[in-house]
């Protein structure tokens, strides 16, 4: 963890060499999802509600997923842009250093401009929280934080899977965007508004439901099960990273035996 901070600090220093570009990009990152949010607003203006979810309830879901996405794009950028690392041969350099490849790839790149997106999601979160009434308990606060954490792990897990593909082919990684950008677009709404198979896919294969739909119901007081179950549900999403890491290590092994 200490070394992760060191990577962070050197890359932040590097980023600060280009201050204007940093500010402009962050500014842009603030407004891109803002337009999406505006779209959400107009949608509800027209229809009032979707399958029983009000605008602010969906807004909460939106804010949490976008926060998770912003954080994972900032810290998981190394995996997101991993194809460059392989294509340039710099991955070899990582292999001759005595640290885990996962740590080094994470540390190879950060996208600090995502602070813009994060701020935007925070703004949305605040607006939303002002407008919905939630009976806040400590359990609910923890759940909400875990929802974000769980989302980060799921997105980073997908980045890792996409990066692993680079060991076989560098061109095909656009496919992974279906699951990152696509996953984000889908998971910004409560999952039960979709067809059954979509909901199932995003519950049991890529467990976005654990960061979104299931605990969301709990936050909003739409459930009657025991509290503790819902607090820990997002943790199941965190587990998603484990098979991803396993596949990653398989990919590294393949790379080292083929060198391509």
């Amino acid at each position: 963890m200490f070394i992760f901070g060191k990577y962070l600090s050197i890359l932040l220093k590097a980023q600060m060499q280009y201050r204007v570009s940093f500010l402009l990009l962050s500014f842009g990152q603030f407004f891109v999802p803002f337009s999406v949010f505006a779209g959400l607003y107009f949608l509800f203006e027209q229809f009032g509600q979707i399958k029983g979810w009000s605008f602010y309830e969906v807004g909460l879901c939106f804010a949490i997923i976008h926060m998770a996405f912003a954080i994972s794009e900032c810290f998981g950028r190394g995996f997101d842009s991993f194809s460059q690392l392989v294509a340039s041969g710099d991955f070899d350099r990582l292999l001759v250093r005595p640290r885990s490849t996962v740590l080094q790839v994470l540390g190879s790149k950060f996208e600090f401009t995502r602070i813009g997106r994060l701020l935007q999601s925070l703004t949305v979160l605040i607006i939303v929280l002002v407008h919905i009434e939630i009976d806040w308990t400590i359990a609910k606060v923890i759940t909400m934080m875990l929802m974000v954490v769980s989302g980060v792990f799921i997105f980073v897990g997908i980045f890792i899977l996409a990066a692993t593909l680079c060991f076989w082919t560098i061109q095909a990684i656009e496919v992974a965007n279906i699951f990152t950008d696509g996953g984000r677009e889908i998971a910004q709404y409560p999952l039960d508004i979709y067809k059954k198979w979509v909901t199932r896919f995003f519950t049991f294969v890529i467990p976005f439901a654990t960061t979104n739909y299931i605990p969301l119901n709990y936050l909003l007081g739409k459930t009657d099960s025991s509290d503790l179950f819902y607090v820990f549900i997002p943790l199941a999403g965190i587990l998603f990273i484990l098979p991803c890491l396993l596949i990653w290590h398989y990919g590294v092994k393949h790379y080292r035996s083929t060198g391509s």
Partner: peptide, 14 residues
């Protein structure tokens, strides 16, 4: 220690 003459191992902007 490994030096690849054609690739850098230093952080470019710092």
């Amino acid at each position: 220690g490994v030096v690849f003459g054609q690739r850098s191992q230093l952080w470019w902007d710092v």
